[in-house]
Design a protein around this nucleic acid. Sequence first.
DNA 1: GTAACTATATATAATCG
DNA 2: TCGATTATATATAGTTA
Lengths: 202, 202
Amino acid sequence: MVRQRIEIKKIDNVTSRQVTFSKRRRGLFKKARELSTLCDAEIALIVFSSTGRLFDYSSSSMGQVIERHNQQTENLIQLNQPSLELQLDNSASAIAIKEVEEKTLELRRLRGEELHGLSLEELKKLEKTLEGGISRVLKTKSEVFEKEIAALKRKMGSDIGQTQEQGQSSDQSIITTTTNGSSAAAPPPRDYDSSDTSLKLG
Amino acid sequence: MVRQRIEIKKIDNVTSRQVTFSKRRRGLFKKARELSTLCDAEIALIVFSSTGRLFDYSSSSMGQVIERHNQQTENLIQLNQPSLELQLDNSASAIAIKEVEEKTLELRRLRGEELHGLSLEELKKLEKTLEGGISRVLKTKSEVFEKEIAALKRKMGSDIGQTQEQGQSSDQSIITTTTNGSSAAAPPPRDYDSSDTSLKLG
DNA sequence: GTAACTATATATAATCG
DNA sequence: TCGATTATATATAGTTA
């Protein structure tokens, strides 16, 4: 945005990521407040930093806005009426269920299924999304390929007698294609500072 | 903010309030998306316009963010003890949320994001999926296009009669009307604001 | 209603203290 | 690690078509 325009992708450097987060978060909340005031809109904004800190804002009451959101989204699916008690507190569940449906449909459409009834405009948008995806996938593929080739060359040059294999995911990627002989490119690049408090399934 | 600085208070004029709402809403959602991407933050944003239209965005899953927010704030409030039913409901919620996470990841990868760490094999699979999707989307697009053209031609033929090659005394409203009519079967219009969902109140 | 088009106001990345 | 500064990139109020 300044001095130099930045690309919108995850900032690698942890420090500058935190600085940017702090600045932009303030800006975002300010914009939200302004929109609410100027246009009489009801707004809820929830932000979790990557370290798990919570920031939130609501023009009225967080619960109220969420409840309203819940009511609108609930109408889109047939929820089996759980119990009167539950109805009040299952907003997250209802929303999640609806989200699964939405995302499932979107996935199918990206795969070229369930396209009937879509307008030309929507089809064009899909096409654009797919074009973008394929271009980035191809780019990444070349990068990975180059990296593997380089690693292979290094290995041949220095040491010819070492084989290393690490059980990664349960995916049996032994059946790789020709160029993929030494699967050196599957290191799990995980995050560093995530005191994530999200719940896990048992 | 431009031409002249405005005061942050409710805009009286209804028209300009709506225009401002539309512009600023887009800006706000864009900022939210950018913050999420740049800083790896989890964000939920809910906006109700003064007319009751809903717009929302969530970096991952709305239900998940709300649930996480609830958990954090729950500690501050005295909650009536969770009943057995609620616990069951939470696990259902957790399952749904996990599904949302999985589908979200897959969607992002199809869009060419979050590709790091994927093996060549997985990238090839993605590419194949995308190729298939785009081919079917293109096919459907041509079909829809042909259909609309055909409908248009039929309409013009019956309205104007046949072999009226040169007597172009017919007014343009016919063309306009038929054009609109042919697309009347299009699905309900959505607000094109990325992943925002909009609804109307009764 | 809306789709550009500016001229400015803001936001903010990089830098400095 | 911060706050302050500054040079640019963005956002957008007012306007026009």
